[in-house]
Design a protein around this nucleic acid. Structure first.
Length: 454
RNA sequence: GCGACCGUAGCUCAGCUGGUAGAGCCCUCGGUUGUGAUCCGAGUUGUCGCGGGUUCGAGUCCCGUCGGUCGCCCCA
């Protein structure tokens, strides 16, 4: 009686992506390139644990709570309530804050670090949105004050990292929150969050729909000022090189601002304009890869100045940002009694990779890293084959030795399927020479493991 | 978390208004002796997501449930 084996049918867990070897190879190559660019600017690497105490993560507050995965044992002890609850981190900025506070005495400031790790968010997955994904973060943190220079530097680094991969045109869009926040405060907006969210959606919904949704949110005078700002924002988009001129002009002409404004608010706007101006000037060498875009707001409320988003111009079907960040006045205020301003930007690596993969923009790599497959002619000749493989490996090649003395055709077809470019034939009989076959041309020549090169 | 759609072999899917499962790909073997990608032949593979209901009979209809895709919220 043959009882049927119970099979648990494998299925993917939605939002937890995994790739086949040929795509994983590309992913690894890309990560190496990003790392190389980060390090070329002198940023160091750190890694923090996958989990933090829930208290630490929830310090960011509000509606990110619902995205946090908590960690617990299936069979928890009844008295385990006493222990701190653990949670998977949902970004790398909060762990960085904790890290900096914790190792404050041992770090050298400005602290420049990059971090490439998985993060987890309990969201409904869809195109470009996962529950587990890799982010490549780069941040600078300093004590008391942080030069504006870094706002430009981190953006330039990320742009360079993206350019190092073959992904078509990307555009980094920069704004400064002080401009919009100053304006809204200035004109006395009572529900800034709602307005900000709406402005952030401008690109997606268009000016017409924007005006419709703006109806009923606030009084007329304020509304007009906002619409004027959005029109200004569109004008800047059309003529990004004149961003600061357009902005200054806007303030000078706007009678709502002139009449009702508080000095502090106007000062904030001006500050924002100065800062944006400086950052854009520092990034001029990147051409139209970097533009001003006043409609960029960013949801996370700790950003206080410069903010960034990045679009893949050659994948129009995906409008989300693949690389975002900004400046925060005080990163670690909730963990240490120091003032630690910072600026950082994060490449949404998995999003970037998956969107490009689905758009057919990524050429898969070989299924094996090997350069050479050494054929095993027979058990009697295994030593000779293994020796040839060792010699080639010692000379720097990646070499796989076939595992069983099967028919030669089978061994070659294995190399073909795995994308191994060369097949090595040890002598099949005493006195014969080694041979090597180039799989793409089919050409086969005599060769010696001691001096053959690819 | 809310809404719409979907769930048949490892993969992509077919299965008409209910009558007890099929194709292509993949995989394995073969088309003699030491050479792949083509071609030809043969073969293996399914609790039709799960549970219940209607029916003489359900992959096919109904309910529930779980999973997936997309949209919204939000974001990398």
């Amino acid at each position: 009686m043959s009882e049927k084996k119970k099979i648990y049918k494998p299925k993917p867990v939605s939002g937890f992506p995994e790739w086949l070897p040929e795509y994983r190879a590309v992913e690894q190559r890309w990560l190496d390139k990003i790392r190389a660019v980060f390090e070329s600017y002198g940023y160091c690497s750190i890694e923090t644990p996958a989990v933090e105490e829930l208290e630490v993560i929830a310090a960011k507050g509000e509606d990110v709570d619902k995205e946090i995965y908590v960690l617990e044992r299936l069979q928890a002890d009844p008295d385990e309530k006493k222990d701190a609850r653990l949670a998977l981190h949902f970004d790398q900025t909060v762990p960085l804050a904790r890290y900096v506070a914790q190792h404050f005495a041992d770090l050298t400031f400005p602290f420049k670090r990059y971090q490439m790790q998985k993060v987890w968010r309990g969201e409904r997955p869809q195109m470009g949105r996962m529950r587990e994904f890799t982010q490549c973060d780069i941040d600078v943190i300093n004590v008391d004050s942080l030069p504006l220079h870094f706002d430009a530097e981190v953006a330039a680094i990320c742009y360079e990292a993206l350019a190092a991969m073959d992904m078509g045109r990307v555009q980094l869009r920069v704004s400064n929150r002080k401009i919009l926040l100053g304006l809204l405060e200035n004109i006395g907006v009572k529900n800034p969050a709602e307005i900000l969210r709406l402005i952030d959606k401008m690109d997606k919904i268009g000016l017409l729909e924007f005006k419709v949704q703006l109806e009923g949110t606030t009084e007329k005078e304020v509304k007009n000022a906002i619409i004027q700002f959005v029109e200004l924002s569109n004008a800047v988009k059309e003529n990004p090189s004149n961003a600061s001129g357009l902005l200054r002009d806007f303030i000078a002409r706007n009678d709502v601002i002139a009449r009702s404004g508080s000095d502090a608010a106007i000062q904030m706007m001006n500050e924002g304009i100065e800062e944006l101006d400086f950052v854009l000037k520092q990034l001029e060498h990147l051409g139209d890869g970097v533009v001003a875009d006043l409609s960029i707001v960013r949801g996370l409320d700790y950003y206080t100045g410069t903010v960034y988003e990045t679009q893949l111009l050659d994948v129009p079907e995906f409008v989300g940002s693949v690389c975002s960040g900004g400046r925060y006045d005080d990163l670690a205020g909730s963990y240490i009694n120091k003032h630690l301003p910072g600026v950082g930007i994060s490449i949404g690596f998995t999003r970037l990779f998956d969107v490009l993969r689905q758009a057919g923009k990524i050429e898969p790599g070989p299924k094996s890293p090997a350069d050479v497959l050494v054929v095993l002619p027979s058990e009697e000749r295994r030593d000779e084959a293994a020796q040839a493989a060792r010699t080639l490996r010692e000379r720097g090649m990646k070499v796989e030795l076939y595992h069983a003395p099967q028919k030669v055709g089978k061994q070659i077809s294995y190399a073909e399927k795995k994308g191994i470019p060369y097949v090595w034939f040890p002598p099949f009989e005493d006195g014969l020479a080694h041979e090597v076959k180039n799989m793409s041309t089919g050409e086969q020549t005599e060769a010696s493991p001691n001096d053959w090169t690819i």
